[in-house]
Amino acid sequence: MREQPRSDTGRDPKLVTALIVHPGRAEGAALRAVLDVGEQIRVVARTEDGGTATTLTQRLRPAVILLDDRIATPDYRELVRTLARQSRVIIMTAATECTTITALLRDPVRGCLVYGQFEAADLREAVRAVAAGLGWLSPVAVAAASWQLRGRRRPVATALTGTDTIGLR
C-alpha cells in the first residue's frame, strides 16, 4: 500500500488548519464543532483575544484564520493586517450594511462570512477554498462589493420602490 504524500513539515497536505478568533465562548465552540467534522479541517486553537491570536498565529501557522469583527483589540484593522501577513483571513460579521461590509473588505482578507447568511457546509467550504488561495463571500458581501464597484449607485429597483431588492440600503 502506498503512503499518503506529506508536506515537508510531516503534515497531510490536504488537511487545512484553522484558528478561530471569536469573542463568544459558546459561538467559538460551535464554529469549532462545525469545522472539526470530518478529516479535512482541523482547528488548531480558539481564542477570544486579538493579542493571543497574533501569538497563536506566529506559533501554529494556521492556513486560515476565522476572525470575528467584534473581537476586542486596540486597533482592529492593524490586527487584521498582522494576521494576514502570516495566514489567510476570513472575516465573520453580523453587519449587513454595504458601507460596513465594504470597509471590512478593504482590509487584506480572503473572505467575508455574514452570520445568518451561511450554513455549516458553506463555512467548511469557505475555509477549504480560502486555504486553496481562493476567496469566499456570503451573498450579502457579494452585493456590498458590487455596490462599491458600481460607484455606490443604487439599483433601479431601489430608485423605483424606495427599498433595495436584497435588503440593503
Rank of each mutant, 00 (worst) to 15 (best):
A29N: 05
R32E: 11
R59E: 10
V37A: 13
A63F: 08
L134M: 11
A45K: 03
T96N: 11
A30T: 09
P139Q: 11
I71A: 06
G135I: 08
R70I: 04
V89E: 02
S87Q: 09
V64R: 00
P155D: 10
T158L: 10
T100Y: 12
K14W: 09
T57N: 13
V43S: 07
T102Q: 06
A120L: 08
I90T: 02
A95W: 01
R88V: 03
V44C: 13
V80N: 02
A84I: 09
R59A: 15
R6A: 07
L79Y: 05
R77H: 09
A141E: 00
R153S: 09
G167N: 00
R88S: 12
A144R: 01
R154M: 12
G50Q: 07
T9G: 06
T55G: 06
E119L: 11
R2Q: 09
V44I: 14
E27I: 13
T52H: 15
R6I: 10
V34F: 13
R46A: 12
P23T: 13
V156Q: 11
Q86M: 15
R110C: 14
L137M: 12
R124Q: 15
T93H: 02
T57R: 05
T47K: 09
A18H: 05
P108V: 08
A33P: 02
P139A: 14
V130N: 01
L79G: 03
L31R: 04
G133S: 05
A131W: 08
C98G: 10
I101S: 06
T73E: 06
T47S: 08
I71H: 02
V43K: 01
L149V: 03
L56P: 01
R6V: 13
A18D: 03
Q40V: 08
L83K: 02
G116L: 13
D122K: 07
A145W: 07
I90K: 05
R77Q: 08
L134I: 04
R85N: 01
A121V: 12
S87G: 15
L66Q: 02
T102S: 15
A18Q: 06
P23L: 14
Q148G: 08
R124S: 11
R150K: 07
I101K: 03
Q86D: 04
C98H: 13
R11A: 12
L19C: 09
V140N: 06
A45D: 04
Q4I: 09
D122R: 06
D68M: 10
D49V: 05
S146T: 14
G167P: 00
V34H: 13
A103T: 07
T73V: 15
V156K: 07
D68H: 15
R70S: 13
